[in-house]
Amino acid sequence: MVVDDHPMWRDAVERDLAASGLDVVAVAASGDEAITRFAASRPQVVVLDLQIPAPNGVEVTRTVLAQDPSARVLILSASGEQEDVLEALKAGATGYLVKSASRTDLLDAVRRVAGGGTVFTPGLAGLVLGEFRRISDPANQRPETPELTERETEVLRMVAKGWGSKQIAERLFISHRTVQNHVQNTLRKLQLHNRVELTRWAIEQGLDEVDEV
């Protein structure tokens, strides 16, 4: 499924995907359309623009993954707003690509995400590194704050410096699969942390007050 409010883009992406033999089961121009059509067409992969008419890409990611956790979300964004990308990732998206990426990059990314892999740009790896440093800062630290292992940090830093996963595997003498696992683990820890934070927030907002009423 392709979600983008610009018809030009939607058509271009749809055409590219169809031309390479992939099956585009639905397209949508807004968050509402995306959520309704997702339920009807059950796509394996959602190629999602973040800047769409409400609800935004982050909300759509959260909603569709709650409906079908086996689906995969690939963010395809032109926006310069990096915070949004990080939020979408925390909500469960497993890939991020800028719109200026080439057609081969896009097809490769869709295939990789569909196969359960992750697609990280160097920029995204930098953001995730920054986010982990922020949450492990003594000022924000809580008992169950996830931390990256040394290897995970090393791999993530290499991704941020533009290393491809094959190059990383060669350099660190580990398998290509292991590199992918490390990247996926960092993402899983970030999403888990986000869920813990959301739960804590719900409790703080007065779930325990329900008894008193």
Binding site: A78, S79, G80, V98
Partner: peptide, 18 residues
Amino acid sequence: VHDGVLQVLALVQRRGSE
């Protein structure tokens, strides 16, 4: 407006590279 311009620039770039 910026978002729209970025989209168009990215599209031109993508078509150009092909």
